[in-house]
């Protein structure tokens, strides 16, 4: 196995250390998180919103004492925002000042002067590094989080390929920058768009789904320790029931934790029908979903 830093020793170690950072991972998640470190391959995490995809990257950074470099993807993201950019305003000033000084020295040969600035404006001094290049060049352990990669345009995926497979960035004017130390790369996606085969091939894949009732209760009680055990059980049962319904947006883990906090803040000691009706807005955010839940759970009979 590689000599560079091992992120986790075994899958069990991954599970234990992630749990220590407040991230309760199931067997598959822990195994995949371990593999991503051991094989030094990027990890593509897919799943519905709010099941802890981004949180996984943060937890890995926390437990290994690595710095988190985050690239938030959005529509219209381009090379200049993701990889690197030349500081052209500064370059323009350099050219202008060079031509001014050339006029001052008057009749030197033109070609020589022109080459003078051509060399000097493509150096480190004028390079603005963006998240991907930053993560590659860092000497310390780094977790690179490429968040919501499905929001970008297809062209950006092409841009990611070189980074994901070889951990290097080619800048035409400077040459190839290779990773001093391979970062732990996590890509997250809501699967609103199918990613290209090329990206998927280079990644390990993990699908995070809603957890089973037992794990969800552990998560809720670990995030909101003050919540009574009984209320937590009622809450998880209701959430499980809601997810079985045909909803536009099923409640996520993040929303069950929010709900737990709400119940705590309102000092509701028993999650009965009235309490559910009053706080349903915390977990269901479509009018049609709420109407359906009220009908199915027979809240206002």
């Amino acid at each position: 196995m590689p000599s560079s830093p091992t992120w986790f020793a075994t899958p069990a170690d991954a599970a234990a250390r992630l749990a220590g950072a407040g991230y309760l991972a199931d067997g598959a998640t822990a195994t995949t998180a371990y593999l991503a470190g051991a094989l030094e391959k990027p990890l593509l995490v897919e799943g519905p919103a709010g099941v802890g995809k981004t949180e996984l990257a943060k937890a890995v950074a926390r437990v290994s004492g690595a710095e988190l470099v985050r690239l938030q993807c959005y529509e219209g993201l381009d090379e200049a925002r993701a990889l690197y950019e030349w500081n052209y305003k500064k370059q323009l000033l350099r050219i202008q000042s060079a031509s001014v000084s050339r006029e001052a020295t008057a009749t030197t040969t033109r070609a020589g002067a022109a080459e003078g600035w051509d060399e000097s404006i493509f150096t480190e001094e004028f390079l603005l590094t963006r998240p991907l290049l930053t993560a590659i060049r860092r000497e310390e352990p780094t977790v690179l989080l490429i968040d919501e990669v499905d929001k970008t345009d297809v062209e950006v995926e092409g841009l990611l390929l070189e980074v994901l497979s070889d951990f290097q960035v080619t800048i035409p004017e400077l040459g190839t920058v290779s990773a001093a130390r391979r970062p732990y790369v996590v890509l997250t996606s809501n699967a609103t768009r199918e990613l290209s085969e090329a990206v998927k091939r280079r990644c390990l894949y993990l699908h995070l789904d809603y957890p089973d009732a037992e794990r969800e209760r552990e998560i809720v009680t670990s995030q909101v320790p003050d919540l009574e055990e009984r209320v937590a059980a009622q809450l998880v049962a209701t959430i499980t029931r809601l997810r079985e319904l045909d909803l536009k947006k099923a409640p996520s883990i993040a929303e069950s934790v929010d709900w737990a906090r709400t119940l705590l803040a309102l000092e509701i000691g028993d999650l009965d029908d009235a309490a559910i009706t009053a706080t349903l807005g915390v977990v269901l955010k479509h009018a049609s979903d709420q109407a359906r839940a009220v009908k199915e759970l027979r809240l206002r009979a």
Partner: peptide, 12 residues
Amino acid sequence: RAGYAATLVKKQ
């Protein structure tokens, strides 16, 4: 199983 799934299955 998790190891196989992580490397081979790229679509849920």
